[in-house]
Amino acid sequence: MDFSRRETFGLGLGALALMALPVGASASTIEEMIAEFTGGADMADTGVTLTAPEIAENGNTVPIAVSAEGASSILVLATGNPTPSVGTFTFGPLAGARSASTRIRLAKTQELVAIAKLEDGTFARTSAEVKVTIGGCGG
């Protein structure tokens, strides 16, 4: 495929605009996503545990674990990703422990947020900072 000088420059500008968009948009959507999950309720600082590595060499697979005593569901958000939501873990009546672990993608060094909805209707929140050496979203 051959591009003229002008076309190449245009493509570069387009790519830059695409990269800039999600970063600018995410700050407000995180608050909205939290509000949607909690319904605007207050969150306690204790009661949920989020285990994540301090430094992740490869952002493509970052092992994380969440647990919260008596939680009915746990929401995980990656605040620095183009799409911040990571997943929601909902525990059924036969869940042996209110915990789960998985592997996620992180685009860059950022803060992870976990919010647990407890069975008594209250919410708990925690966060963890993860340093990412190689980003995992291929932007």
Binding site: T83, T88, T90, A95, G96, A97, A100, S101, R105
Partner: peptide, 24 residues
Amino acid sequence: GENVIDIKMEPAMSTNPYFEFDAT
């Protein structure tokens, strides 16, 4: 027939999604 865990996944999940959890 009784639910153990139900996970909603977003694009931030890694390739070959892996889960570890406990069941009674």
